[in-house]
């Protein structure tokens, strides 16, 4: 049996966005993205669950200090996206459609650089209570 343990930290942010592909005409965007294409934006309460998997440190018993994990997520993700318009206010989505899938990948890439490579990182992102995505896919 593996000694690895998964720990999870839940955080949340609120943001506006729209789904739009600038390479398509209005009718195609409307057909593919429907109400999500509203040019005046709409928005969500996003719930973010960050999962780290590794062997607990024998000295602390921790896979990762959860308080530090919370601070790391706040400084690098929540501050960037909370109460923002993802399309208008963030560098990450200037050229990238802010679908839940792409938001999860962006968050993964931001956090991956900040967390010891010995720990596995996994992102679950809820766009609504009933729609959520996971990255990397297992």
């Amino acid at each position: 049996m593996s000694d690895k343990v998964s720990v999870y930290r839940k955080e949340h942010f609120n943001a506006a966005h729209r789904l739009n592909n600038p390479a398509w005409d209005e009718a195609t965007n409307e057909r593919v993205f429907g109400k999500c294409n509203n040019p005046h934006f709409h928005g969500h309460n996003y719930e973010l669950i960050v999962k780290l998997t590794g062997i607990p440190d024998p000295a602390t018993g921790y896979v990762y200090d959860m308080k530090k994990l919370s601070e790391l997520i706040h400084e690098n993700v929540i501050e960037k996206f909370d109460h923002r318009n993802l399309n208008e206010d963030t560098e990450e989505f200037k050229e990238l459609n802010p679908s839940a899938e792409n938001i999860a990948i962006v968050i993964y890439n931001i956090l991956r650089k900040k967390i010891d490579a010995a720990l596995d990182l996994h992102i679950r992102l809820y766009e609504t209570e009933r729609n959520f995505v996971e990255y990397p896919a297992t």
Binding site: A16, D82, R84, N85, D89, T128
Partner: peptide, 12 residues
């Protein structure tokens, strides 16, 4: 505060 962001934010 942040709720006044001129480019909007959003909720479920």
């Amino acid at each position: 505060g942040r709720c006044a962001n001129k480019n909007w934010h959003g909720h479920n």
